[in-house]
């Protein structure tokens, strides 16, 4: 196991009912690093991402086997409260999903439920700093009371990032965060991811190999439910070990 590993997964299997969706995955997520999961659709990359904060618990038919540790502790231990885990492992989804509340309340939601602030002033501060970190503050500072659903797609996604950042997670999971965005918004979000790296680990699932190459330091390639190759992004894209990785990167499978 890598010394710098924030989270590490060993022999992870996921079943949806009788469907064996993920087979024998071993991955270490390094601290303060952007890790990209790539692979064709249905390869299991999103499934694996959702194991890291136990979002699969909310799917009744899903069953997870194997070991996933965070800071050396098994997150599937029966004593672990998934609620507490998810406060440390935040998540941003494929489609922007702001709550039908004001911009302010969207960001304040996490701190409020976890009781992270003592008073309104602190909460205001958290909201402001989170929005700043998400590079959204300048655009919305005059209309914090406006509904979050009224923002543009790219702004909504940055609002969701701000919302996730507000609980000061240690790991941030992003499930194809740019797939519903236009190129300009995508560029803004990518820039953001790079900044966030200074504070915590980011795991990003993406369809686009260019995006993985641009934002990540490490890349994992999934194919048909198995982890094919995992390593430095540069290595994966220039000198992959596995012929399947090469085929995917050169566009022969996908």
């Amino acid at each position: 196991m890598d010394e710098r590993a924030k989270m590490s997964a060993r022999r992870v299997q996921v079943y949806y009912g009788t469907n064996h969706a993920l087979k024998n995955v071993d991955v270490d997520i390094l601290d303060k690093t952007v890790t990209a999961f790539i692979g064709p659709s249905g390869c299991g990359k999103s499934t694996f991402l959702r194991c890291l904060n136990r979002m699969n618990d909310t799917v009744a038919s899903a069953r997870v086997e194997g070991l996933i540790e965070m800071d050396g502790r098994n997150i599937y231990d029966s004593r672990v409260d998934p609620v507490q885990l998810r406060a440390k492992v935040g998540m941003v989804f494929q489609k922007p999903n702001p709550f039908p509340k004001s911009i302010y309340d969207n960001v304040a939601y996490g701190p409020k439920i976890h009781g992270l602030t003592r008073n309104k002033a602190e909460l205001d501060e958290v909201v402001e700093s989170s929005l700043r970190k998400a590079a959204l503050w300048n655009e919305v500072k005059d209309r914090l009371a406006a509904p979050g659903t009224g923002l543009s797609g790219g702004q909504q996604q940055r609002l969701c990032i701000a919302r996730a950042v507000a609980t000061s997670p240690e790991v941030l999971l992003m499930d194809e965060p740019c797939s519903a965005l236009d190129p300009i918004a995508t560029a803004q979000v990518e820039e953001l991811i790079d900044e966030l790296r200074s504070q915590f680990s980011v795991v990003i699932v993406t369809h686009s190999m260019q995006q993985a190459a641009r934002v990540s330091q490490r890349t994992a390639f999934f194919h048909l439910g198995s982890l094919v190759e995992y390593g430095e992004t540069g290595t994966i894209f220039t000198a992959p070990n596995d012929p399947r990785t090469e085929s995917y990167i050169t566009g022969r499978i996908g």
């Binding site: 909310t58 998810r86 989804f93 999903n97 999971l173």
Partner: peptide, 20 residues
Amino acid sequence: ALRDGSYGLGATQSETVKQV
């Protein structure tokens, strides 16, 4: 997606129901 968003932030089920 809204429920997922709330769970993803570490809300309990009842918090998700009541607040989202």
